[in-house]
């Protein structure tokens, strides 16, 4: 590998941007395709599909064996609200290799006893992001679960502005209608607001906190695995 290709890969990873290293196994030639360059690449479809899968793998293009090293930033899940559903969600999300953080300014809820081993941040979302919780980006999922607009709304706004790949909010259709009105009033477009999954989770008839957690994670996986080239906005 050329040192400049390795340097480019490392720089993209440090910046939490995806990149794919395309290696021709026969000739040994290599090139780095950055996420933003995929759409215009001759192998756009293949690269977009492999990036969505998140897995490195072999491919054959016009009879030549290629190896695609897929480097996608680790996906983070920021849960807003140290509530009962969150307690069920945390271990399941960890099992899916998501980097989990829970934000809740209410110290009565956000206790290490209720969330063993989880990165707990007892701050308001606006205080947390960019500080105790790294700034949100496209490789973040945000689930707002407090039912309290004072806490959920700022987190949802930050998630929409950061173009997080998944934004979900707990609450009934009525609650969500009120939320849509509030977000619209502060300038979010209908398209942007439409990206919020609400009521949160896949419609699987979930009842218990653990079932709701499953429905949320199912929706996150679905969003994560959708081809990114199609999702490129």
């Amino acid at each position: 590998m050329q040192l400049d290709a390795l340097t480019a890969l490392n720089a993209e990873r440090a910046a939490r941007r995806a990149a794919i290293l395309v290696t021709d196994l026969d000739g040994g030639t290599q090139r780095v395709v950055r996420e933003a360059e995929i759409a215009a690449d001759p192998l756009a479809d293949l690269l977009g599909q492999r990036l969505a899968s998140g897995k490195s793998s072999l491919a054959e293009v016009e009879g030549r064996p290629l190896f695609l090293t897929v480097q996608a930033p680790p996906v983070r899940l920021v849960i807003v609200g140290a509530v009962h559903i969150s307690q069920a969600l945390c271990p399941m999300a960890t099992a899916l290799d998501l980097d989990v953080a829970v934000i809740d300014p209410r110290t009565a809820f956000a206790t290490p006893e209720r969330f063993p081993g989880i990165d707990l941040v007892t701050l308001w979302p606006d205080e947390a992001f960019g500080g105790a919780v790294p700034a949100l980006d496209r490789y973040c999922a945000v689930a707002a679960l407090t039912h309290d607009p004072k806490i959920d709304d700022p987190a949802l706004m930050a998630a929409l502005r950061a173009d997080c790949f998944y934004v979900g909010a707990l609450g009934s259709r009525k609650t969500h209608a009120a939320r849509v009105a509030r977000l619209g009033a502060v300038g979010f477009t209908e398209d942007a607001i439409g990206r919020i999954a609400a009521p949160i989770g896949l419609d699987i008839g979930a009842v218990s906190p653990a079932e709701i957690a499953v429905s949320i994670l199912g929706q996150i996986v679905e969003a994560q695995r959708a081809p990114r080239s199609a999702a490129a906005r």
Binding site: M1, L3, L6, T7, L9, N10, R13, L25, S56, L58, F67, T69
Partner: peptide, 20 residues
């Protein structure tokens, strides 16, 4: 990968192995 880059920049001979 960071180590590979750092070692190379330090002038060491470096090879990278990848499970394909």
């Amino acid at each position: 990968l960071s180590t590979a880059e750092a070692w190379r920049r330090a002038g060491r001979g470096v090879a990278l192995a990848t499970v394909i």
